[in-house]
Design a protein around this nucleic acid. Structure first.
Lengths: 119, 119
DNA sequence: AAAACTTTTGCAACCGAGTTGCAAACTTAC
DNA sequence: GTAAGTTTGCAACTCGGTTGCAAAAGTTTT
């Protein structure tokens, strides 16, 4: 099962949500897929994005990604097709927080129209 | 009802979620509060933040806020107390998107420990 | 002030994403 | 082959959000 999920993930060009993953299989149980994603995430194989669609989306991490703040990248969520892209070349800036606030992670999602829908 | 909700909102130092708002009242119905927030949001009195807590949070907009991209600010979500702060002084940077991608909005949430929990 | 109409509210039901307990199926080790 | 550990599937449940509908409250018209 995990191997199959991994395969689907590698084939994806955009981040996938649990419900979408369910549909890809029709056979596997939601709970299994859910736990698979959690396991992958724990082992830093994938990262999760809160794109505001109501469901978390997941995408493969880069090789050697340690999921540290410096490695975070911007995500783009298309208002039209709903796809969520990993902008791996766009690092998340670390803003100057006020005194006493400690940065540990960040979620930066840009919304708009993707190049595919724009055409 | 709306007046009461507005009052609660002005008293808040951090963004509030629908379930939290419900608790503040004990009397009013979820649906009423829900619709109130939606109405406020439509009229750009408040803005919503997806802080990844599983529930949307709302906070009052600044006077004359038009909710345009340039007016967006960073939000900070504390991992300890769960509060979500509006960093009104920190504008959301507009990253250089690849060709064909059109920016329309953004959600930038920094996570970590807030100054209050740090003490 | 009553009638007609509009708006707001409360209830109940529902949906969808995520999550968990538990027992069955499967692996691996001995 | 049996015991121990792991993975899977089912079912049930939680929780935030959302909607239809009818009652209540508020407005306007006459």
């Amino acid at each position: 099962m995990r191997q199959l999920v991994l395969q689907v993930l590698t084939e994806q060009k955009t981040a996938i949500s649990l419900p979408e993953l369910e549909q890809k299989f029709e056979k596997a149980d939601k709970a299994t897929l859910y736990r698979t994603l959690k396991t992958f995430e724990e082992h830093q194989l994938i990262h999760s994005i809160e794109d505001g669609s109501g469901s978390l989306r997941y995408a493969l991490c880069e090789d050697f990604c340690t999921c540290e703040p410096e490695h975070l990248h911007v995500h783009f969520s298309c208002n039209k097709c709903g796809k969520t892209y990993c902008m791996k070349d766009l690092p998340v800036p670390q803003p100057d927080l006020p005194n006493g606030f400690e940065f540990s992670s960040a979620n930066f999602v840009v919304k708009g129209i993707c190049s595919n829908c724009k055409k």
